[in-house]
């Protein structure tokens, strides 16, 4: 849209600002945006694949719910600490066997811990927890119950937020520590030292060891992984329902929305994605630089 039209035929317009050209300042050519590219390298999500991935989040939510359920039972005296201890022991041994089975399936023999090291760690856990449980029981005696609950809630939330959902096998420091802190706070409210010990063992199982096993499961048999997730979610909702119905409803709503609604939203909003690329982007080095070395 040259104002005069006449000089535009003789002199071609160039997309530069540093040169004086016979065009008005706001003049643009047809070729102005021809290098624009949209949505380069975008990944198309498929709904069920996303749901499968998101089930890990729902599963973790349910894990927290299961832990809280155990604690509620223990606090009301409905669950004897011995029972919980034995259950934990059996579950732990079972999980350890499964873990070993999965490890032998995969050929990653690069850094396998020996059984002795595992035994050492287990002895360390048990002895420390058992030794400290009388101390832990009196720890929050003078702190008000509301404070302890609030602190535990914040810490569990921090655990959920900072949990490494992409790669849960080496547990993230912050998430594990937050969960353990919360469980120590909650366990210190229980009536006896053995209760505290049982609760902490349970926390160790749920927050530290279970994600490792789950990761192995996801790598080796994706079908069973989905089944386990569904099982855990139902277990969490069911367990909470036996204590408080409202909590169970809330949990199930949360699980459903995280597992089904959020992926739906993601896939639906995918259409509106509009990324623009062009020569104005900063440079990206994508070439293999190794040939410079030779």
């Amino acid at each position: 849209m040259g104002a005069d039209g006449a000089p535009s035929q003789s002199v071609p317009w160039r997309k530069v600002l540093w040169e004086r050209q016979p065009f008005p300042d706001n003049y643009v050519d047809q070729r102005f945006l021809e290098e624009l590219r949209r949505n380069e390298g975008i990944r198309e999500y498929r709904y069920w694949a996303v749901v499968k991935e998101a089930s890990l989040v729902g599963q973790q939510l349910s894990c927290v719910a299961i832990f809280i359920t155990f604690w509620l039972y223990m606090e009301q005296g409905l669950l004897a600490p011995e029972t919980l201890l034995w259950t934990s022991l059996v579950c732990g041994l079972l999980g350890y066997g499964l873990y070993q089975a999965f490890t032998s399936q995969t050929d990653s023999c690069s850094e396998t811990r020996t059984h002795l090291a595992d035994l050492q760690s287990a002895a360390l856990f048990l002895s420390f927890t058992f030794g400290f449980s009388p101390v832990l029981k009196t720890l929050t005696e003078s702190v008000s119950t509301d404070t302890v609950y609030a602190m535990s809630a914040v810490m569990l939330l921090a655990h959920l937020v900072s949990f490494p959902y992409g790669e849960p096998s080496p547990p993230g420091s912050l998430s594990l520590n937050a969960a353990l802190f919360a469980s120590v706070c909650l366990a210190s409210r229980l009536p006896g030292a053995l209760h505290t010990f049982a609760m902490l063992s349970c926390a160790l199982l749920v927050f530290a060891l279970w994600p490792c096993l789950l990761q192995r499961l996801r790598e080796n048999s994706p079908l069973q992984f989905t089944g386990v997730c569904v099982g855990v979610c139902t277990g969490g909702v069911g367990g909470l329902a036996s204590q408080s119905l409202g909590g169970a409803v809330l949990l199930s709503l949360a699980v459903v929305s995280v597992t089904f609604l959020c992926p739906l939203l993601l896939v639906w909003l995918q259409r509106h994605k509009d990324n623009i690329h062009g020569p104005w982007d900063e440079a990206e080095i994508c070439e293999d630089l190794s040939h410079f070395l030779h």
Partner: peptide, 21 residues
């Protein structure tokens, strides 16, 4: 730094105790 599981566990246990005392 990536810590081992047992280091994290004992560290958190001690942290809680020290914090409350």
């Amino acid at each position: 730094c990536s810590y081992d599981l047992d280091q994290l566990f004992i560290g958190t246990l001690l942290l809680t105790i020290l914090l409350f005392l």
